[in-house]
């Protein structure tokens, strides 16, 4: 009795702290914790908004693994995801090393600012710019091709180009952001390391290769994990840049969930796929976490 009173007293003492935290907790319960459980429940239902939702056991999951569309989305997610993860981890690293060699501070800052800019734009803007750049009439890429006497190509209507375009445009948008992460790490490297290497007679290339690059590996690890998380959540870019012609090559899992669940209203089925993606994310993150730790 005494202890209970004590607890109440303690809670009362910090009631204002709880009050400050209350909106956050309410939000997380309604829009993060509850949906996790609700999504799991719905995935076992033939869900409907009006009337009663029937429990159907594993029917939704069975249907998912038997549908070619699901496996197609799965394959596309892996291909696009792998391309995105690798390119947007390593190319910005090279970029950061090159930027770091610029000796004029203003020029360095200017280039960095320009390269970062696309990261600010929404996928609608980035997608819109590139759909226009790649368009057969007035698109910059085809105008350049025409200058060399080559015919225009309708890039956005060719399955062969679809995946490289998606990966390339993603790189264009994210490179500057990732580059800043690397530059920040480089800025934090102890300058004495370079001085010591210089006294030992190490040339500029050796100094970069034996000091800067190893220091960047911890950042690379963070970047790889961020990219992997992002790759499995890919939706916005596809929603903007897909069309029916290239859909077989670019429809990813999250788009499939959206299309099945909220366009065709197969809510239970879409929920089941969400659960599968969640499990997949968990597995892939765990594996890559171990793998990345092991190699680095």
């Amino acid at each position: 009795m005494r202890t209970r009173k004590n607890i109440l007293k303690q809670i009362f003492k910090v009631r204002l702290l709880y009050l400050l935290m209350l909106p956050t907790l309410v939000y997380f319960f309604i829009f993060a914790y509850f949906p996790i459980f609700d999504g799991f429940r719905i995935s076992f239902q033939d869900f409907r908004f009006v009337g009663e939702s029937r429990f159907v056991g594993f029917d939704n999951y069975r249907e998912a693994v038997q549908t070619p569309g699901f496996w197609r989305a799965f394959r596309n997610t892996l291909i696009l995801g792998f391309g995105n993860v690798m390119l947007t981890a390593f190319i910005p690293m090279v970029l950061a090393l090159l930027l770091n060699e610029l000796r004029i501070a203003a020029w360095k800052r200017f280039t960095q600012t320009i390269i970062y800019m696309p990261h600010l734009f929404s996928w609608v803007i980035v997608g819109g710019i590139w759909i226009f750049m790649l368009s057969p009439n007035a698109g910059i890429i085809n105008v350049i091709r025409n200058l060399f006497g080559l015919d225009s190509i309708y890039f956005m209507a060719k399955e062969t180009y679809a995946q490289p375009i998606m990966i390339g445009v993603n790189l264009w948008k994210q490179a500057g952001f990732v580059c800043i992460l690397y530059l920040a790490t480089i800025a934090g490297i102890n300058p004495e390391l370079y001085q010591a290497a210089m006294i030992d007679g190490a040339g500029a290339f050796k100094r970069v290769f034996y000091i800067t690059v190893p220091e960047l590996l911890s950042t690379l690890r963070v970047v790889l994990l961020l990219n992997i998380m992002g790759a499995l959540r890919m939706f916005n870019q596809i929603w903007v840049m897909r069309n029916e012609v290239i859909a077989p090559k670019v429809d990813v899992l999250m788009y499939y969930v959206y299309e099945r669940g909220l366009v065709q209203f197969k809510i239970g089925y879409a929920a089941a796929i969400s659960v599968l993606i969640f499990v997949l994310t968990f597995i892939i993150t765990a594996i890559s976490n171990r793998f990345i730790k092991y190699t680095a």
């Binding site: 935290m21 956050t24 997380f28 309604i30 829009f31 993060a32 914790y33 509850f34 949906p35 996790i36 609700d38 999504g39 719905i42 869900f47 908004f49 998380m229 959540r233 939706f235 999250m254 969930v257 959206y258 669940g261 909220l262 809510i267 879409a270 929920a271 969400s274 993606i277 969640f278 994310t281």
Partner: peptide, 19 residues
């Protein structure tokens, strides 16, 4: 407060839509 960081919005769109 920390756990929701591991629950990306994209993966719960169906139940959030229902909510």
């Amino acid at each position: 407060v920390t756990i929701p960081m591991m629950i990306p919005f994209e993966m719960i769109i169906i139940p959030v839509y229902v909510t």
